[in-house]
């Protein structure tokens, strides 16, 4: 049996499961390169305005450009709120589908960036409410460029049980800790700590005051602290 004409599949660059953090520390290069995974710079809003205007005029290809532009960051937002790749994929499709249908009514009072993030957060929160407390982790692989992340390596160096753990075990614990938060707390943690959004932007997206954002972050961090303390008390052998 032969299969002809298949396209080459890019080899995965995910780390093997049992890679120890100690290995990462020892193999980290002396010169710390700026990680490619810095929170994404906020995209140019003037370009968005033009693309939105063209979409409203009937240019479907302009909307395609917006999809391509916003898919990676919205994927990150939804994935970190759901910890499930398949659900994230479905939600992301629904978000753009809804945005495409609603864009004729978009009047530009907020930026497209804020608008589409609002749609994504709200659809995800609604989904999570329906999903309830029973969830299924379906985690993406960790990209190898984490080896160049200076701050992450520093954090793992300071805590002994974490240093000895598998990267995949740490990933699992972090996701479980996130899932223990309430959906709203997880949303602000995702936007602030993982996506790197400033408080002001988060407050515009969630339509709450900046004070509310700060206080949710405060309590969320407290909860995460206690969950991760359990990890410290029950380290992986």
């Amino acid at each position: 049996m032969t299969e002809a004409g298949l396209k080459d599949v890019n080899p995965s660059i995910a780390l093997p499961a049992a890679r120890r953090l100690t290995d990462l520390l020892s193999s980290a290069p002396e010169v710390h390169v700026k990680s490619k995974r810095e929170p994404m710079d906020k995209p140019r809003t003037d370009e968005d305005q033009e693309l939105v205007a063209r979409t409203q005029a009937g240019d479907a290809a302009a909307f395609d450009r917006l999809v391509v532009k916003y898919t990676p960051r919205l994927y990150g937002l939804i994935y970190n709120m759901t910890s499930n790749h398949e659900d994230t994929n479905d939600l992301l499709q629904d978000v753009f589908s809804k945005a495409y249908k609603a864009i004729r009514g978009f009047r530009g009072k907020s930026s497209f960036y804020t608008w589409i993030h609002s749609i994504a957060v709200n659809m995800t929160l609604n989904f999570l409410k329906k999903r309830g407390r029973r969830y299924q982790l379906s985690l993406d692989d960790v990209d190898a460029s984490i080896q160049n992340d200076k701050e992450f390596l520093e954090a793992t160096a300071t805590s002994s049980p974490v240093r000895e753990a598998d990267l995949s075990e740490l990933q699992k614990r972090l996701n479980e800790a996130m899932m223990k938060l309430s959906d709203e707390h997880r949303a602000v943690v995702t936007m602030f700590h993982i996506q790197g959004m400033p408080h002001a932007e988060i407050s515009k997206i969630l339509r709450v005051s900046e004070g509310t954002v700060r206080s949710r972050l405060f309590y969320a961090n407290r909860h995460l602290q206690s969950y991760l303390d359990e990890f410290r008390k029950n380290p992986v052998s």
């Binding site: 660059i13 995974r37 898919t71």
Partner: peptide
């Protein structure tokens, strides 16, 4: 002083920035 503080949590959570979907996912999304 093994307590995690806000800073530590923030740094550990950086791991989640590196969780990426399978290769080709974004190309195929459109």
């Amino acid at each position: 002083m093994d307590e995690f503080n806000d800073n530590e949590i923030a740094k550990l959570l950086r791991l989640k920035r590196y969780e990426q979907p399978p290769p080709g996912y974004f190309e195929n999304f459109l």
